[in-house]
Write a protein that binds this DNA or RNA. Structure first.
Lengths: 228, 228
DNA sequence: AGGATGCTTCGGTTAGGATCGAAGTATGAA
DNA sequence: TTCATACTTCGATCCTAACCGAAGCATCCT
C-alpha cells in the first residue's frame, strides 16, 4: 500500500531493546556519553556506537562534542513527549517488563520525564493547579490563568520570561504510570527546576526517579493539596 | 536500566515493514481479512497469518470470525490515534517514503484516520468549527459549545445520542500531513459518517483517501469556510 | 459426499542486523 | 613524545525472525 510516512523506520529504531534502554535513559534529561549509554543498554561501546549513529541519523538524538567526550541528548522535547506517550500506550496494552524491579515504586511516585515532573506527584501537581483555578483545561489542553500567573510568581517562577520563549508554556503529557495527564512545557520544566533548586528534591543517581527530602515533601504536599 | 514499560516490544511490532503496512491499511477503519492484509503488506497469506497473530498477541488488533473469513480491525480507536501520532512524528523527522506515489496528493487532501476525517479538509473543518464558536479549544483540548450543539443538530447530527456513549465527544488528533490538529472522537466519526451518507463523499477502493463529489465538495466548503 | 475457499501450522531456508574483538582515530594528560 | 582515554570503524560470527512451500483444519457451497 505504501501510504503516508514510514512508521516502520521509527518503529524499528525503538524496537531494539538496547536502543530502547538508551532512549529511556536519556529521558532523564541529562546528556550522557556513549560509554554511559552503553552501560544503560547493557552492551559494549562498539555496539552502542553503531546504535547511536542510527538514532542520530533518524533524528531522534542530538550530539555535542566536548573534548574527547561525546554527549548525547534527545533531539528535542518532542522526542521525550513521544517516548512517554509510547510508554503510556505500552503500559495500557500490557507491555510491561517481566519483573518490575525494585526501583519501580519510586519511579511511579516521582520521576523525570525529559525535563519535567511525572508520576504520582506530577499528576497531583497538575490536578491541584487546575482545582485552584491556576490552570484552565479543556480535554488535554492547558492554559495558565491570570490568577495562576500571580500564584506562580509567589512560588518564585518568572512566568513573563517563560512566555517570551518559543516553546509552549503549558503542555499536557500523558503519564504512563498514572494514565493521566501531567504538566509539561516550559512551565513544567520551570517548576521542576524550582523544586530542585530549593532542595525539596534531587535526582537519583542512576535512574529517572526524583527523590524528595522529608521537608521538601511536606512543602510540596502542602503547596499542592490533594483534590477531592 | 530496565525502567518502566517495555517500549521495545511495540516498537518491534510496528518496526516490521509488512506489519506497518498492514496496520496502515487498517487505519482506513474497515475490517479486513487476512488475505486482504497479506496483499496490503506485500506478503503471502502464511506470513501474514503469523504477523497478525503477533499483532493480536500485542493487543494492537482485534479479530472477528465470520464464517470462513476472519476480519481484523485495530483493537480500538486509541490504536488508530497512536498510529497517526507516530506518522506525524515520523513525517516531522523526515522519515518519508522514497517515492511519494501518485495517491499522495489525494491522501493529503482528505483521508480517513481510523473513523474520522483527516488531511487538509479535516483540519479545515476543525478550524472552521472553532472560528465560528462551535468548539472551544485550549491548546490541544476541545469541547463542544452550546451553540455548536445546535449548529450540529442542523447538519443532522444527534449530539445527545453521542453524549451518552462512553467515548469522548471531541478529541484532537495530530494530522501528519498538515501537522495540525483535526477532530477525532465520536463527533468526528459522526461528521464523517454524515458526509458519506449524504453522498458528499465516498471512500476510495484500495486506499485511505476520501473522494468528494463536485457537489459534495461545494457544500462542504460552504459549510466550513476557510478561516483566513 | 466432494470440492472449493480462507486461514493456520509446520519445516526448512535465508537474510539482516545485533554483537563483540581488534584495529584505527581523536583528544587530553604526563 | 609517549601514554591513556573516549569513541569509531572494520571484520567476522551468530542468531533471530521473516519468508514461503506444503500440508492440515475449518467452513461453505453444491
Amino acid at each position: 500500500m505504501k501510504e503516508g510516512p514510514d512508521i516502520a523506520q521509527i518503529g524499528a529504531l525503538i524496537g531494539d531493546p538496547a536502543r530502547a534502554n538508551m532512549l529511556t535513559a536519556l529521558m532523564g534529561g541529562k546528556a550522557l556519553t556513549a560509554t554511559e549509554l552503553a552501560a544503560a543498554g547493557g552492551i559494549t561501546v562498539q555496539t552502542a556506537s553503531t546504535h547511536l549513529a542510527k538514532l542520530e541519523a533518524g533524528n531522534l538524538l542530538a550530539q555535542r562534542k566536548q573534548g574527547r567526550h561525546r554527549y548525547f541528548t534527545l533531539a528535542d522535547d518532542s522526542v521525550g513527549k513521544f517516548l512517554e506517550s509510547i510508554m503510556g500506550f505500552a503500559a495500557g496494552r500490557g507491555h510491561l517488563r517481566h519483573k518490575p524491579g525494585p526501583k519501580e515504586p519510586a519511579l511511579r511516585k516521582a520521576r523525570i520525564c525529559y525535563d519535567h515532573l511525572a508520576g504520582d506527584y506530577g499528576v497531583r501537581m497538575l490536578d491541584s493547579l487546575i482545582a485552584r483555578g491556576a490552570i484552565d483545561s479543556i480535554g488535554d489542553g492547558l492554559a495558565l490563568t491570570e490568577s495562576g500567573e500571580t500564584a506562580l510568581k509567589d512560588i518564585g517562577i518568572d512566568v513573563h520570561a517563560l512566555k517570551s520563549s518559543r516553546r509552549p508554556l503549558c503542555r499536557s503529557c500523558l503519564d504512563w504510570s498514572e494514565r493521566r495527564a501531567h504538566l509539561a512545557g516550559s512551565l513544567g520544566k520551570a517548576l521542576l527546576s524550582n523544586f530542585l533548586e530549593k532542595g525539596w528534591a534531587r535526582r537519583a543517581a542512576e535512574s529517572r526517579s526524583v527523590v524528595f527530602s522529608p521537608e521538601g515533601e511536606r512543602q510540596f504536599l502542602a503547596l499542592f493539596p490533594a483534590t477531592k
